[in-house]
Design a protein around this nucleic acid. Structure first.
Lengths: 198, 198, 198, 198
DNA sequence: TATGAATGAGCCTTCATTCAT
DNA sequence: CATGAATGAAGGCTCATTCAT
């Protein structure tokens, strides 16, 4: 039961895994303790409550990832290189730790109000990039919220498809295709090739 | 408390609303009964269990919508008109009953295994359309799963953005933009306009 | 397990008994349910919480008893008859339901702030009687709070002595002795008989 | 956190204070450790258990006080001087350390069986004094248990009134009044002054 | 069908206590 | 002696479900 890792790390890992596998509400503290190889009471030495564990897990990683994405773009200039870097990094992150990625996706839909919009939010990072791109005339679209949603959809839905076995991991296989699909989707002035239809 | 609608319909409506507002697990049978204006025990005259209610609500509507989408395409021919019809109908469905739409989106992520892939599944309907489109040479992409994910992302993420207030309803406002964005995204041979980058 | 009494009454009786026997905090909801012959969850159909049960049990009886004492005095006039009636009634109450009496004594020391001073409080009833007595010149003492404490002590300490087996029940045996002891104690002008001391 | 006092003393003080403030059961070992500025485990270097701490605190002080009261009476003779000395000392004790006084009062109602009756018990000391007084013909009453209860009530209820703010500390203000009230209450042959009643 | 009191398993959390450092 | 993380039993409470009316 005891392995080398510190207690907190074992809670962290077990929680991430179970929350993604069964859902947050569906995972009991009993489940958590069992999976982490600790007693139930032990969890409360590290987190004030189950909710606190979820919030901490989410906020810490969500924020860190947002900061990482922001840092990544500092040396780059222009919409295209920055978007490419963003997508590449997000896909790499997914492949490095799919469980964490899915947890963030999962909880985002429940715990969003906890995290204020701003630089700490990966979605905001993307949104700001898009806004800047529109201002610089790099995009055909003029609604930043719509453009952000499109990019998000083109990135996250393939990730979801992997979860359900409709697409084969790793996600990074699709980095280039998704990147160029984003560029095309956003460029409303482009001329789609004429296609045959019967 | 009593209104004109039959009991079953009132359970249906209350459940949909509460499940979307608070989550399925977070909604208790007591909540349901209270919102529907019935006694707790009464729910069990209509559904074998809470799970059964969820499953029934999901399956019935998910399937019906899939059939509807299939029927819609029968008179149409070719990828483009069919995709346009699909998107138009999905967006219209969202705007007509956002609660049901969100419920389907929500439960899909938990109850998916219940619904076998096939004609009863809206995602499958899209998938088959895409497969046919590829076979007919109407799309630049060759991976139907990836193309399906892209279209799905371009449709669903704007719907999600509306939930979080990042985009203004109705979703139908974006039908044309999303439709053409799908076409561009899927057309890997198209030439994105040259853009300035600094 | 089932007897004829309604559930609420059985909870009431079991709670009173256990609270007095073991203390409020020391009595678990599990204990309560077992003693009342009901399931744990059943308690929560009748009381919002364990605290609520305690508060309700206390407030209801404490208040009712205060009202009863007040009513009792309406037809009487003057300090002495009223005090005699008060003591007689309090002792009779003790003997009729010693468990309830002890519960009120017990919880009073923890839940006092819940019950505002006033006509709903047996101690206040006594206090007001004493105040009136002082105003009418019926007492030697001039501090109503002190006089109230004295009477209270002369009544309650014998009740306590019965609990600990230092005095034999019923308490009513001592009604007259305590009543006259109160009168003597309160009459600071009286001349205690000269007594021999060796 | 560390102050000059030895660990045991700090536990002692913190325990007394918290037990009186919140109740024994309501005070956790964690509360105790925090208030005493020690680690939770440290408490167990000094006491075998929380119960043991309570018992020790109670027995030690209860016994010591009984001995003190006994010693106090050795040089005095006769019921009256001894009672006066007793009351004076008890009230002084209350005022010197109200927290300890209240703790003794509090725990007495829960832990009494632990302490055998006898010379180690302040109540017994009073009881014996009363018995001797009756034997010597110094009291009007003939039931020593009842007389003891009366004296106890006349002393303790004012102390209780101070806790609840119904009377102003210090208790010693009332020494003489309570002393003479005891004498009058115990003297069943005394003639209460005739009072007016309307 | 409808009701709503009753059920008891299970949930999150707290607690007194232990023990390796 | 002191520490504080770890323990797991027990606590109060909620829940989906049953059943007599």
């Amino acid at each position: 039961m005891k392995d080398g890792r510190p207690t907190r790390q074992r809670i962290h890992d077990a929680a991430l895994r179970l929350f993604v596998e069964k859902g947050v509400t569906e995972t009991s503290v009993r489940d958590l303790a069992q999976a982490a190889g600790i007693a139930e009471g032990t969890l409360y030495r590290h987190y004030a409550s189950k909710d606190d564990l979820v919030a901490d897990l989410f906020a810490r990683n969500y924020t860190a990832f947002a900061h990482h994405l922001t840092a990544l773009q500092a040396p780059l200039h222009g919409f295209r290189p920055r978007l490419a870097a963003l997508i590449g990094e997000i896909f790499r992150f997914h492949d490095d730790n799919p469980t964490l990625f899915r947890f963030l996706l999962l909880v985002q839909h429940q715990g969003l109000p906890r995290i204020a919009d701003g630089a700490d939010n990966p979605v905001s990072v993307l949104h700001e990039l898009v806004e800047q791109g529109i201002k610089d005339g790099d995009l055909g679209l003029t609604d930043p919220a719509l453009a952000t949603a499109m990019i998000l959809g083109l990135m996250l839905q393939p990730a979801t498809a992997i979860i359900y076995g409709r697409l084969q991991a790793p996600l990074s296989r699709f980095t280039d295709q998704i990147n160029s699909a984003c560029l095309r989707a956003l460029d409303s002035t482009g001329q789609p090739t004429e296609v045959h239809h019967g």
